[in-house]
């Protein structure tokens, strides 16, 4: 077999598998979309794979109102803004200290964050539940804010990769001008780390937005529902109305899709920069 044939087969294999992979990814979303746009009658009378003749948006309106999605979005936004803002500040502070200073305990602290990554968070809920109760935060959004606030090893890793490429000479020249360490953090390190913070923010927002178990466990009140728990509540009362459930699922998916469309370069760039150099 000559090279020309080899290349042609390789190309078919490459593009073929990419197209099949993409179809498998898109198929469930497409099915959800077309069926969410069918009226009850159309849903019962047309095939599941068929596109509706008339786009019917009433499921979206019903889902929004009956599911209390408006307040779910507000609750979610409140929790995300507070915890991500705090998370960025704390994460950059940890990265500044670990990245710029030598001190005893440094290795132990880094190892501590690494070990924690392998403790499945759901298992320790039994004990965390007690802590939240003792702090009097049960059934308040602050329970979640507190749980999401802490930094983790992935964030520290992304930040450390980034801070190592900020020249130390910048710190030194600021020190010659008499700047304090805090000033260096506030005026040099924090602003220069903003691209890394963008990556951390997106990953954190995706994680918080998709989290079901923490809100389910710590905020059982209906009026405190976040997007995940509000969507989960569709199962009982609307269990037979699939067009409605699918509309609600799509409403919940939209904000992350928009975030992803506009900010995806930060996700990919951040992961690439924070990746392994062995």
């Amino acid at each position: 077999m000559n090279d020309k044939w080899k290349n042609a087969i390789w190309a078919i294999l490459k593009y073929g598998s990419l197209i099949i992979g993409s179809l498998i990814v898109v198929f469930p979303m497409w099915i959800a979309l077309i069926n969410s746009l069918k009226s009850n009658q159309a849903f019962n009378n047309t095939g599941i794979l068929q596109v509706p003749k008339h786009l019917d948006w009433s499921n979206y309106i019903t889902a929004w109102n009956a599911g209390g999605l408006g307040s779910a979005f507000l609750n979610t936004a409140f929790i995300i803004i507070l915890s991500v803002a705090g998370n960025i500040i704390l994460g950059t502070m940890v990265a500044y200290v670990l990245g710029r200073f030598q001190f005893r305990l440094k290795k132990i602290i880094m190892a501590g964050y690494l070990v924690v990554m392998f403790i499945p968070t759901i298992t320790t809920q039994v004990a965390i539940f007690g802590v939240i109760h003792t702090l009097g935060l049960f059934d308040t959004p602050y329970a979640l804010v507190l749980l999401y606030l802490g930094t983790d090893v992935v964030q520290i890793y992304i930040y450390m990769q980034f801070i190592n490429r900020i020249p130390v000479s910048l710190d030194e020249s600021a020190m010659l001008d008499g700047a304090s360490y805090f000033r260096i953090y506030r005026s040099i390190i924090f602003p220069l780390m903003l691209p890394a913070s963008a990556t951390v923010t997106i990953l954190k927002v995706i994680a918080i937005y998709g989290d079901l178990y923490s809100p389910y466990l710590y905020m059982p009140s209906t009026n405190l529902g976040v997007v995940s728990t509000a969507l989960l509540r569709f199962e009982g009362p609307f269990s037979a109305q699939w067009n409605l459930i699918l509309a609600a699922s799509i409403i919940i998916a939209i904000p992350m899709v928009l975030l992803y469309l506009f900010l995806q370069r930060f996700i990919f760039a951040g992961i690439v920069n924070g990746s392994v150099k062995e």
Partner: peptide, 9 residues
């Protein structure tokens, strides 16, 4: 995508 939405779909 939100995990609950994925599972429902």
């Amino acid at each position: 995508l939100n995990a609950v939405a994925i599972v429902f779909i």
